[in-house]
């Protein structure tokens, strides 16, 4: 059997082989463009160091944005949703059972009401 057979999705297809070939071509193009850049920078000078608005950095571990703060803006924007969804996850075992019973009622309504 041909191992490279594409997936037929009904309205299209997916063949990773084509993707890989395109990816390699893209890499080659990137390499060519990179070759057009300047090679005359000076190593081990200020030119190769990161520039942080001109601030001098003493302890670089303080630069690390902690995991909890990476998407601060996103969670702040959806505060209303997150407050609600977080208060849903009470961590109380009885609520877990209660949700199960609620869903059982929902399934009852669906199966008996429509079928």
């Amino acid at each position: 059997m041909n191992p490279f057979v594409p997936i037929d999705t009904g309205s299209g297809f997916w063949n990773p082989l084509i993707w890989v070939i395109v990816f390699i071509i893209a890499l080659l193009i990137v390499y060519v463009i990179r070759g057009l850049g300047r090679g005359d920078y000076k190593k081990n000078t200020g030119q190769t160091k990161p520039f942080l608005s001109g601030n001098v950095v003493e302890n670089d571990e303080q630069l690390h944005v902690k995991g909890g703060n990476v998407y601060w803006g996103f969670t702040e924007a959806f505060k209303g949703y997150y407050n609600k969804i977080k208060s849903m996850h009470t961590g109380d075992t009885r609520d877990y059972v209660l949700w199960f019973l609620v869903m059982m009622v929902v399934f009852f309504a669906v199966v008996l009401g429509v079928m």
Binding site: M88, H89, G91, D95, Y96, W99, F100, V102, M103, M104, F107, F108, V111, L112, M115
Partner: peptide
Amino acid sequence: KVALVLLLAALTMKAGIAPMHMW
């Protein structure tokens, strides 16, 4: 149908479908 409801509710809970995913 009642049996279907019970099976569905219990097995979807064990499969972790919201809002029974909290465990």
